[in-house]
Design a protein around this nucleic acid. Structure first.
Length: 208
DNA sequence: CGAGTTTGACCGGCGC
DNA sequence: GCGCCGGTCAAACTCG
């Protein structure tokens, strides 16, 4: 019986393979989205492959993967311990394909905007977003957690509940002191060629 | 029947 | 060296 358990021999480097270059290869960007649902419809198909309870938050963290075998994009979804209505979504990697399901009538395109935005920002030097100091999970006092929430621009907290996404969507450095102005949400350097957004989000909505 | 979700167990790295 | 924690896989279960 135990043999079956041993037969697992899971993939090395797969489990917490944070061996410097082993990971940290794909671009990552975190979002702070004000939403009641964890799983935001972004036009892509995600498959949940794990869920874990984290220390900083009473809410579990969900791990999603793109159903596309060619796509190695991963998504981490967790709620803010301070604001249960705030969902922190961390994307890792880039989609090598277009949205898979658009015919879904119930799709909330605001989520699509989120990801589209993410893709656009993906080449904004993710490292900049993750410019956080070498603070592991040690001194992760609740205060640090607040820092993450604090990084949320006031515009987020003032959302009324209708058109929140376009303003609540903001990449957060995750517990970092790197305060990024909302205006940076759409850096002028980035060619917002209406790539995905233009396809998903109406011009009016993109009015950052 | 297939795809997706759920849950438990395990690994690997890091901190102390 | 040990313990803790995050991250991933795999099998089982559920729903369409």
């Amino acid at each position: 019986m135990l043999a079956s358990e041993q037969s697992r021999s899971m993939k090395p480097a797969a489990a917490a393979g944070k061996k410097g270059q082993k990971r940290a290869r794909q671009q990552r960007f975190a979002f702070v989205t004000k939403s009641e649902v964890d799983h935001l419809e972004d036009g892509y198909r995600w498959r949940k492959y794990g869920q874990k309870a984290v220390k900083n938050s009473p809410f579990p963290r969900s791990y999603y993967r793109c159903t596309n075998s060619k796509c190695t994009v991963k998504k981490r979804v967790e709620r803010s311990s301070e604001d249960p209505s705030v969902v922190i979504t961390t994307y890792e990697g880039q989609h090598c394909h277009h949205q898979t399901s658009f015919q879904r009538g119930g799709m909330h395109f605001h989520g699509a905007a989120t990801v589209a935005l993410a893709e656009q920002m993906s080449f904004v030097s993710t490292q900049q977003l993750y410019n956080l100091p070498p603070l592991r999970r040690q001194q992760m006092n609740p205060a640090s957690s607040e820092s993450a929430v604090s990084s949320v621009p006031p515009s987020l907290q003032q959302l009324n509940g209708g058109d929140e996404l376009r303003r609540s969507t903001s990449y957060s450095p995750t517990a970092s002191a790197v305060q990024t102005p909302s205006s940076s949400l759409v850096p002028p350097d980035v060619s917002f060629d209406m790539g995905l957004l233009g396809d998903i989000v109406p011009p009016g909505v993109r009015n950052g």
